[in-house]
Structure formats: C-alpha cells, structure tokens
Amino acid sequence: MNRSQEPQRRASEDRLENQLDSSAGQLPDHDGRTPSAGGSGTAALPTSLGGERGDGVTDVEASTHPQSRSVVVTVTDPRGLHLRSGRDVVRTASRFQSQITASNLSRNTSAVDLKSILQLMQLQARQGHDLKLAASGPDAVAAIDALCSLF
C-alpha cells in the first residue's frame, strides 16, 4: 500500500515541530470509558512527540499543520473491535477526504485502509489492543478527532 510509507516521511517532518498540539484537549470525551485503559499499553510508545492526554489516547505525531496526524488508541470494548463498531468506524472515516489508515500495534499488523470494513476486520483488534490511526489529507486532524471517540 503506497500510503503506508507516508507516515514515516511525515514523522521526520513532525520532529521539526517543537510544540505539542494545543488542540488535544478539545477532543471529544469518551462517553464514560475508563481513562486509564491505555495506561500500561501505551507506555513503550514514542510519546516524546506528543503526550498522554489522560483519556486513553496518546498523540504520536502531534502536529500543528493539518496535513497529517496520527494517534494511538486503546480498544476498550470487552468484545473488541466487532462488526458493529467497525461499521461505525468505517462510516466515520468515510466522511473525510483524508487517507486514513490503522495498524494494530499489539499484533504488529501492517497499516490497513480504515474506509474498508474488510480491511478493518483484519486488524483482529481485541480489548486492550493498541491501534495506531494515521490520517493524511486536508481534514486529517478532524478525522482523527472524530475517530478517537469510537474506540
């Protein structure tokens, strides 16, 4: 997949950014989900580019420019990322122009297209798994913000 190479390129660009994303605190709440769910699972991640936001979501490439953004989310649903929740993720992702990918860090999967339910199911995401969501495009920040609340 061509787009899988893009986050790497952007990551090096983002290292030039010294400021953390000031909009992180404006993300939607997690509807009563346990904020500490992602605590231990995200500890080993490269948080130097972002920060723990206290809601189970860790910014990896917090960037002030809207062309790219990626975060790590932890699956909180006891049934994992199942068919219905996957449907809602694909529906939400499809509202945005940006290319949006996800990889399951806990299973070391490659990045898949988040606008495809078939590819999403291949993440085999269970409760506690860490997923890296990456968006690239004109509405990347809004896309990631909208998707974060679904995990």
Binding site: L83, V90, R91, S94, S116, I117, L118
Partner: peptide
C-alpha cells in the same frame, strides 16, 4: 456472508 456484510456497508456509503 462476507460479501453481503461488506457490500451492504459500502453500498450505504
């Protein structure tokens, strides 16, 4: 089964 699930969602989009 897989085809119907996938087709239904992507058709709805």
């Amino acid at each position: 089964v897989e085809g119907a699930i996938v087709a239904a969602l992507h058709a709805s989009l």
